[in-house]
């Protein structure tokens, strides 16, 4: 089983794109959190690219939820892209899109 997480972070002006490769779970959560520290101060949009992510558990999902709450507090937006169907269904069931809509898009 692939237990690794590799992250590429691209900062283009106020847009920060984070590419997740591998497993985002309780064993790799520290890698993810450490990478988030590199997000530029003037970032207005964080794009999380899940195209090469192979597994996410509840701890990994919790990290995404916490990032959404951070985005609300620090006034930047979050966009999720490249989600495979399984992950998309999981996020629908969990209500991740509802959280984004409620916290980041309401009143836009």
């Amino acid at each position: 089983m692939d237990e690794e997480l590799e992250i590429e972070l691209e900062q283009n002006g106020s847009v920060c794109t984070i590419y997740l490769h591998g497993v985002l779970d309780y064993t790799t959560t520290d890698i993810f959190l450490k990478e988030l520290e590199k997000i530029g101060k003037n970032t207005k949009l964080v794009i999380l690219n899940f195209n090469r992510m192979v597994f996410i558990d509840s701890t990994g999902t919790g990290n995404i939820i916490n990032l959404i709450h951070t985005a609300k507090a620090q006034k930047f937006h979050i966009k999720l892209e490249g989600l495979h169907e399984d992950f998309h269904k999981l996020f629908v069931t969990l209500g991740v899109y509802q959280i984004i809509e409620s916290l980041l898009e309401a009143g836009d």
């Binding site: 939820i65 969990l94 209500g95 509802q98």
Partner: peptide, 12 residues
């Protein structure tokens, strides 16, 4: 009957 996880949104 979908709803957001507990701890996701306040006052849902």
């Amino acid at each position: 009957a979908g709803g957001v996880m507990l701890g996701g949104i306040p006052d849902v």
